[in-house]
Design a protein around this nucleic acid. Sequence first.
DNA 1: GCTTGACCCTCACGCGGCGTGAGGCGACAC
DNA 2: GTGTCGCCTCACGCCGCGTGAGGGTCAAGC
Lengths: 258, 258
Amino acid sequence: MTEATRLTLTVGQAAEQLGVTVRTLHHYDEVGLLRPSERSPAGYRLYTPDDLTRLQHVVVYRRLGLTLEEVALLLDHPESAVDHLRRQRAAVVRRLDELHDLVAAIDRALEREMSNEPATPEDMKELFGEGFHDSQAEAEERWGDSDAWKQSQQRTKGYTKADWAEVKAESDALHKAFTDAIDAGEPPTSEAAMDAAELHRRHIHDRFYDCPPELHKALGDLYVSDPRFTASYDEIRPRMAQYVHEAIHANAARQSAS
Amino acid sequence: MTEATRLTLTVGQAAEQLGVTVRTLHHYDEVGLLRPSERSPAGYRLYTPDDLTRLQHVVVYRRLGLTLEEVALLLDHPESAVDHLRRQRAAVVRRLDELHDLVAAIDRALEREMSNEPATPEDMKELFGEGFHDSQAEAEERWGDSDAWKQSQQRTKGYTKADWAEVKAESDALHKAFTDAIDAGEPPTSEAAMDAAELHRRHIHDRFYDCPPELHKALGDLYVSDPRFTASYDEIRPRMAQYVHEAIHANAARQSAS
DNA sequence: GCTTGACCCTCACGCGGCGTGAGGCGACAC
DNA sequence: GTGTCGCCTCACGCCGCGTGAGGGTCAAGC
């Protein structure tokens, strides 16, 4: 036996050294990611120091979240390593953001559960934010048999172009009321924000359907739960949907308190 | 069409509403997590509003990272929701921490790659601190910039086959010195064992790098701390690594005492 | 030399959470 | 009647291994 031969390790030893299981090494051998360069006469896998070095790289890249295929690519084309790492970094950061949101969502879910309010679909959507298409159908599902929906359909049916222009003017005005409050650094619970919310409620009430504070709150919920509404508000100012949502709730609380 | 009919959705509709695939709904049906309460005469799945509500919950909990089994538990025992959510929160936060470390690790890897130093095992270990007992790398880390390492590299580079044959012969001889001592029942502190250790030291010293007793002791430590060396010695005689280790220390003590 | 026990080997199935066809009905528009 | 959908039920595939089953190998101790 030469010096080099004496330095080879069996699967179990190699596995222990790098903190993986024997099965994992078998698997890497199977898929060709890391085949030991030697075998004993009895067929035992023998890992040379070079094999171990490669294994080390494999383990590291795996920890970085790469798939085995990606690891193989990297090890066989080391020149593309930077690219890969960059992409991987971006992916991990995205995942981080997702998890942040997740924690926030779980916190909200916890609050709700603890206050014993059974989770309603709206609440769920609040958690959820994304992936809710077709809020129209949802609205119809929720309010399809309500007066509000029918009223709105009834009324707007008869609107003229001039009417719609007025509606748009009002809408713009109340958006401005909100953005002014936002730009002034006012919190959504401020007078200014609540006043804007009240304008909003009356706008709905006058133009579309009877909108008591309770219904208004449900509408506000929709602004954060339905991406279409969220997007349209957030196009005006970042996070404006959330702001409007909170202002509406604050306003509703103020109304009921008075 | 009756009211009820109008309110039920087919798989495709239900899937679209909640942003999942038809296959997913089939799967939930298969595993019993969410079976539609109705079927059309033709066998079509029909999802009622209640089904949709349940589905909504499922989707939300899935986004929170729960397994389907956990989701089922939660939906069927809502009282344990808080517990589940707490545990889930903890898990997510742990994962968050891991990802933070990961990003840091990737950044370091990137720096290294960009400065064109190919990632070495030592760097890898720096990234991952834990579970890395590769003593080869350790040796290099410890002695990588030392004269010993460079010397060894320098000298062995120029060795011919004949030289290596000599090295092997010497190596075999000193192994024999050790095994003779072992087989004779001599303790590692015996003269015979210490002489073998001294032979070993001179072998290293003459063939690889200047090896004073202090360095020799460090090498001896490696023989018990590094499974690869341990294994290679223990292949010759059981517990020989430990034996050699102790003999080396005894010899070093003898040298300094004299 | 024989057993014991710790390794090693090769199959080969299992898991979670679906994706992705294949092959065949049902519903509705033209 | 004839498309073109969408629906149905199998049923296999994927990743990264875990987890046996059934059997060889190897050094230690009797």
